[in-house]
Design a protein around this nucleic acid. Structure first.
Length: 342
DNA sequence: CATCCACAGGAAGGACGGGGGT
DNA sequence: ACCCCCGTCCTTCCTGTGGATG
């Protein structure tokens, strides 16, 4: 507000502990209390932006710099942005949400540029607020970047069950009629979310879905069973959404794993996969790629594919489908490619 | 107790469709 | 028109390896 450069800041904490909410709230406060046009506030979630380039492009966009969706080098974009900040003389606050993702996948070069750019930016300035839910990501950072980034540091501890309960009660008052929810249902919501690392977002979602369940079943009150059903439904929705957004080849591989109820291994799966591709008229990928896709599916929690050693008989992935085969086939048959699947 | 299987998974690079600046 | 860069998805080539088996 006085035109001096704020310290860089790092926010830590697991998902659903309020890092993003707090950051956005403070920024909006700041914006509404300042009349100066010398302040610019940008918020970018680097994981949603998906690449380093797009992160920068969004940053530029929010500053009013025209950046094409592709075509420029990272360096070009950076200098374009710096020039814009210098020429307008603005104090820019850049919030990088899920900064750990950016650093892990693309390294800290850009961050390094950002943290030591102050000379090039005068009379403007750039401050970075990094938000991370991975406490270990600091290790991957160049010590110079780290020391400048953590001029200030703030840790968000997970919510306790009691705190979740308080949050949910508050929401329940505005969301429902007085007698429409049992206290035990709120307790259960809080307990379920609490046992899953104190994620407040999940807790609130759970409460909302429980309300929807009760409504659909024509109940006058939300009870424990609604919460349990809601929890199942939330999980189901997550899985179906994940399935739908899968690339074709990943879907084929998933369908192949469903053929082996008692689990399989990489070699066996690859043969069956090849056959299915032929039947569908699709290109068959290499085993290397299939192995990579299996690792992706494992990461998503759709299959389980730990590496096991069978001694003389080699090492392979022991592959098991983790989602219900029926649900999966039903969801995937929405894709015209697989519509004639029986 | 060394051997050797059946892959794992890293590195490098290519094809492709999208774009620059000059 | 020219030569460059971008991300995505994939291939090719490669070295590495846990542990039952002989």
């Amino acid at each position: 507000m006085h035109g001096s450069k704020p310290s860089n800041l790092l926010l830590y904490g697991k998902t659903g502990t309020g890092k993003t909410a707090v950051a956005r709230y403070v920024l909006s406060k700041l914006e509404s209390e300042t009349t100066s046009s010398k302040l610019a506030v940008c918020y970018i979630n680097t994981r949603l932006a998906s690449t380093e380039y797009r992160t920068l492009a969004r940053f530029g966009e929010q500053l009013g710099v025209d950046i094409p969706p592709t075509g420029l080098s990272i360096g070009d974009v950076t200098s374009k942005i710096f020039r814009a900040i210098r020429d307008t003389g603005r104090s820019v606050i850049l919030v990088l949400d899920e900064i750990d993702y950016l650093v892990k996948t693309y390294g800290d070069d850009t961050l390094y540029q950002f943290t030591r750019s102050s000379e090039n930016l005068s009379p403007g300035s750039l401050s970075i607020v990094g938000i991370s839910n991975d406490l270990k990501f600091k290790e991957a950072l160049d010590p110079r970047v780290l020391s400048s980034l953590r001029e200030e540091e703030l840790v968000f501890p997970p919510y306790t069950v009691a705190e979740l309960h308080e949050i949910l009660s508050e929401r329940a008052v505005t969301a429902f009629k007085m007698s429409a929810i049992l206290d035990s249902a709120i307790n259960l919501c809080a307990a379920m979310a609490g046992s899953e690392h104190g994620d407040a977002r999940r807790a609130v979602d759970l409460l909302r879905i429980a309300g929807e369940v009760a409504e659909r079943e024509g109940l006058h009150q939300i009870d424990d069973s609604c919460v349990r059903k809601a929890s199942e439904k939330a999980e189901q929705d997550r899985v179906e959404e994940a399935l739908r957004s899968l690339p074709v080849q990943n879907k084929v591989i998933l369908l192949t794993t469903a053929k082996f109820q008692s689990g399989t291994n990489t070699g066996e799966l690859y043969l069956a996969y090849g056959a299915l591709c032929k039947k569908l008229g699709l290109e068959t990928l290499t085993q290397r790629r299939v192995s990579g896709i299996l690792a992706e599916l494992d990461l998503m929690g759709l299959v389980e594919a730990p590496v096991v050693s069978k001694g003389r008989r080699g090492r392979t992935k022991r592959i098991n489908l983790l989602v219900d085969a029926g649900t999966m086939e039903k969801t995937l048959s929405e894709d015209p490619m697989f519509s004639d699947l029986s």
